[in-house]
Amino acid sequence: MTGPHAGFIIASYAIAFAVLAGLIVWTVADHRLTKRALEKLDARRPRRSEAGRP
């Protein structure tokens, strides 16, 4: 890649890589926050007792 547009092409690839890496980090962080929130809600949920079943 030594043509007149090499700098533009390399910069485009670098920006695309940075955007994709950012999206992956954001998705993983959101997954962890959502999982933690769901675990808190599940802990607050009243449990049914097995004794009441026939």
Rank of each mutant, 00 (worst) to 15 (best):
R53F: 15
R47Y: 00
S49C: 04
K35T: 04
T2P: 00
R47M: 02
T27D: 10
A14N: 12
E50C: 05
R53H: 08
L41E: 11
A43T: 00
H31A: 13
H31L: 14
F8N: 05
H5A: 10
A16Y: 03
R47C: 06
A21Q: 04
T2M: 13
T2I: 13
L38H: 08
L41K: 11
S12M: 14
T2N: 11
P54L: 11
R44D: 04
F8S: 12
A51N: 12
Y13N: 06
A37D: 08
L23G: 07
A51C: 02
R47H: 07
R53A: 13
E50H: 05
L23T: 02
A37C: 05
A14S: 15
R53Q: 05
W26G: 00
A43Y: 04
R44N: 03
P46T: 02
V19Y: 00
R45H: 05
I15T: 07
R36M: 07
P4C: 09
L38R: 12
S12Y: 09
M1R: 07
A14I: 04
E50F: 09
R32P: 00
P54I: 06
R32D: 05
A11K: 00
S49F: 04
A16W: 02
A21P: 00
A37E: 14
D30H: 08
V25Y: 03
A51W: 11
A43D: 09
G22W: 02
R32Q: 11
A43V: 02
A29F: 08
A16N: 05
L23Q: 09
G52L: 05
R53D: 07
L20P: 01
I10K: 15
R45M: 11
G52K: 11
A18Y: 01
D30P: 01
G52H: 02
A16K: 13
S12N: 13
M1N: 09
K40C: 05
Y13E: 13
G22K: 02
K35V: 03
A6V: 00
F8C: 03
E50I: 07
A16I: 03
I10T: 00
A37I: 01
G3H: 08
V19S: 01
D42L: 10
A51V: 06
L23C: 12
T27R: 15
F8R: 07
V28N: 09
L38K: 05
K35D: 07
L33I: 08
I15W: 12
I10G: 07
P46A: 06
K35H: 09
L20G: 03
L33M: 07
A43N: 13
D30I: 12
H31W: 08
F8H: 10
A29R: 10
P4G: 06
G52P: 00
L20D: 01
E50V: 12
A18V: 00
L38Y: 02
R44M: 13
A18I: 03
F17Y: 11
R47E: 05
R45Y: 03
T2E: 11
I24R: 06
P54R: 14
R48G: 03
G22H: 06
R48E: 14
I15F: 13
P54A: 12
V28E: 06
F8K: 10
